[in-house]
Design a binder for these strands. Structure first.
Length: 693
DNA sequence: GATTGTAAT
């Protein structure tokens, strides 16, 4: 009669997590007040697996189009668009604006007889799926009248009149054509999401419109589509009126916690089981948490509680994690509709806020927190920490309960706590390094130091970015001017420091290796990290490890991957991310093409990977840390105390000088993506680092 | 000695 025979004791194994409280069956409830707030408007028109499945029912497409709320307003809308050179359109979820407005423009003749209607999206999947949808509504093949353009995929032709593209693609187009002469209308969709590229485009498109006016060229019509909360800001920035479009969204009842909760993850799980107890089966539950580790721990707890409830008259409960680092096949598990009489409980990061939509969700539990990254220009440090969400994000989460039917949203924080939240999240342009943006803008012909952003980034961030480009030799003078090298660099879709590594790699005869490593660094991690198999994953990875560091290890992984036939199975065996490796392979291919155009000398260093590390130093010379007498590290540039991240192959070793790709403060200040550097290489380059002896 | 929110060119 061991411990595990006792029905109650099996929860003891949950151990160190705070959820042991939950398993101990301490009588715990979270009490909610029904809120009087009406549901706010927020934006969402992501196409997704669910939506596409629904469309497969043979309902007449034209009938469907006519039933969309935007159809009724067609006439009024077109009048306003005719009258104004710029119009802000506030479109609620389900209004049909993304798919219909471009078609209205085309058929009404507003878009003219030539020239494209460009519709920008923050996400690739959205650009692709909306384009396909609109092509089928027009009864044409995608790529003819209606097409899309995203990285690696240009599905357009000379016949294309409606073109969906990522906002980053349009910024790139502006680099060779500052007046956007291919377009008669530009529609900036999802503008409220305020991605860096959208913010750049807001200014670039407005400038293109003015330039065309000044040069007496055919006018550029601008439509900015956004959610409610940003209206005044957009209206002011563009000096344009706003038009409101109603949406089609089911009501969501909001509940706030009566008392402030000290442990949001615990409260969320307690709430989930309260809902599970009280609600009919097939009403699925979506919980917003902050990160992989927290989610995996919560999944373990929830599954144990679900198992205990088995056979007690509750519907069977399936628990799924959801976060973007999860391999695709595991993500798909969470999307499968639950069988009749069952319930899904999905524990997700903010991917489920905008990027993906899950069917069947009737209950949302919002913990009110999110993990957010903020760049500090003066120290070069990125801070990644759990923060309170904004009201806009809270509303976005709430809306996820009302996609298919009336729903409920449980906020595990009080009404007062909600009221104290900021209205909008800080736009990304104010939270990131600007070197890449500064270079893009200069290539368009704009000086970032005077560019009229809707929300200005901090002056220090702009100064640091310009200085960084000067040091790389990409710009010179005041106001900053692009050099020949800078012009070449702007063609690469990379952080300028990575581009510099590629360009300088020719001096070290290792272009091939530089392309590989930079491609891998500019995507997501290729290592998978299933918490349950951490040790196995570590062992599997060790066969690629190198004493020279993570960059050479990445090279080893990619070389092995390239020589493998059964890539998917091989990735699985080796705890590697097939999706991310394939993506890196595409990036590498694109970079290789750009390198060829730039006439870079093809060369490989073979096993002499020291050359690669020297090339990395050419772009990342500011990212050095040295070992001190007390065996800890400090950064060379800002004397910041740092530590080697436990995921690094150099974790546990103590090289005296290391180069890092990234510096992120989470619990501590960690360096990730490391290479061992020989200090004599710095002397060769004329760098001086203050040795402490 | 102990771990990485989400997009995108």
């Amino acid at each position: 009669m061991g411990v595990h025979d006792n029905a109650d004791s099996k929860y003891i194994v949950i151990g160190n997590s705070s959820f042991s409280k939950l398993a101990s069956k301490r009588p715990t409830t979270v009490v909610f007040n029904e809120s009087s707030s009406k549901i706010q408007k927020y934006e969402d028109n992501q196409q997704n697996i669910q939506a596409e499945n629904v469309d497969k029912g043979n309902i007449n497409l034209q009938q469907q189009r006519k039933s969309l709320p935007v159809y009724k307003l067609r006439k009024r809308l077109l009048e306003e668009i005719r009258r104004n050179s710029t119009l802000i359109i506030i479109g609620e979820t389900g209004s049909g604006k993304t798919t219909q407005i471009p078609q209205f423009l085309l058929s009404s003749g507003i878009a003219g007889s030539s020239g494209c209607i460009g519709v920008t999206q923050p996400r690739r999947v959205a650009a692709v799926s909306v384009a396909r949808r609109v092509a089928s509504e027009q009864g044409v093949e995608t790529g003819k009248l209606v097409g899309y353009c995203v990285r690696f995929e240009d599905v357009t032709s000379s016949q294309t009149r409606i073109k969906y593209l990522t906002d980053g693609m349009m910024v790139r187009e502006a680099m060779t054509d500052e007046i956007l002469s291919d377009y008669s209308v530009v529609i900036l969709d999802e503008a409220h999401e305020r991605s860096v590229q959208t913010d750049v485009l807001l200014g670039v498109a407005r400038r293109a419109q003015n330039l065309r006016k000044l040069k007496n060229l055919p006018p550029l019509k601008l439509l900015v589509m956004s959610a409610t909360m940003d209206v005044d800001k957009f209206s002011k920035y563009f000096q344009a009126p706003a038009l409101y479009l109603e949406g089609r969204q089911h009501p969501v009842k909001i509940y706030h916690a009566v008392k402030s909760q000290e442990d949001y993850a615990f409260s969320a799980l307690v709430t989930a089981f309260q809902i599970h107890r009280d609600s009919p089966a097939n009403e699925d539950i979506l919980v917003f948490l902050t990160g992989q580790e927290e989610i995996e721990a919560a999944v373990v707890s929830a599954r144990q509680v679900a198992k205990q409830l088995d056979g007690q008259g509750y519907p069977p409960l399936k628990v799924f994690p959801l976060y973007s680092a999860l391999p695709t096949h595991q993500q798909l598990e969470a999307f499968k509709p639950s069988a009749p009489g069952m319930r899904k409980l999905i524990l997700s990061t903010n991917v489920a806020e905008t990027s993906v939509t899950i069917g069947g969700i009737r209950h949302v539990i919002d913990t009110g927190v999110v993990k957010a990254r903020t760049h500090h220009p003066t120290t070069g440090l990125d801070v990644l920490r759990v923060e309170k969400v904004s009201k806009a994000q809270a509303w976005q989460r709430t809306g996820r309960a009302g996609r298919e039917a009336a729903g409920k949203c449980y906020r595990t924080y009080t009404k007062e706590e909600f009221e104290r939240m900021k209205e909008m999240p800080v736009p990304e342009i104010q939270r990131c390094s600007l070197a890449g943006v500064a270079l893009q803008l200069l290539a368009i012909g704009v000086d970032i130091t005077t560019f009229d952003f809707m929300d200005k980034p901090p002056k220090e961030a702009v100064d640091v970015a310009v200085t960084c480009l000067e040091k790389l030799g990409a710009v010179k003078g005041s106001p900053p001017q692009l050099t020949t090298l800078g012009r070449t660099m702007s063609l690469f879709p990379l952080d300028p420091r990575f581009t510099k590594v590629i360009l300088a790699s020719t001096e070290h005869q290792c272009l091939e290796e530089a392309l590989t490593v930079v491609a891998l660094l500019s995507g997501e991690s290729v290592f998978t990290d299933p918490p349950a198999k951490r040790q196995q994953a570590y062992v599997a990875r060790s066969r690629f490890a190198s004493p020279e560091g993570d960059h050479v290890m990445l090279l080893n992984v990619f070389r092995a991957y390239s020589n493998t036939k059964q890539k998917k199975a091989w990735c699985h065996e080796n705890f590697l991310h097939h999706r991310n490796l394939e993506y890196a392979a595409s990036v590498r291919q694109q970079l290789a093409m750009l390198a060829e155009r730039a006439n870079l000398e093809k060369a490989s260093c073979g096993t002499n990977t020291e050359q690669l590390r020297k090339a990395l130093l050419e772009g990342l010379y500011d990212n050095l840390a040295e070992l001190q007498r007390d065996q800890t590290y400090i950064t060379v540039s800002s004397k910041q105390p740092v530590a080697i991240h436990p995921s690094s192959t150099l974790h546990g070793s103590k090289p005296s000088l290391i180069l890092f790709t990234e510096i992120v403060a989470t619990g501590r200040c960690y360096l990730r993506g490391l290479s061992v550097i020989d200090s004599s290489w710095l002397a060769e380059k004329g760098f001086n680092i203050g040795k402490h002896d």
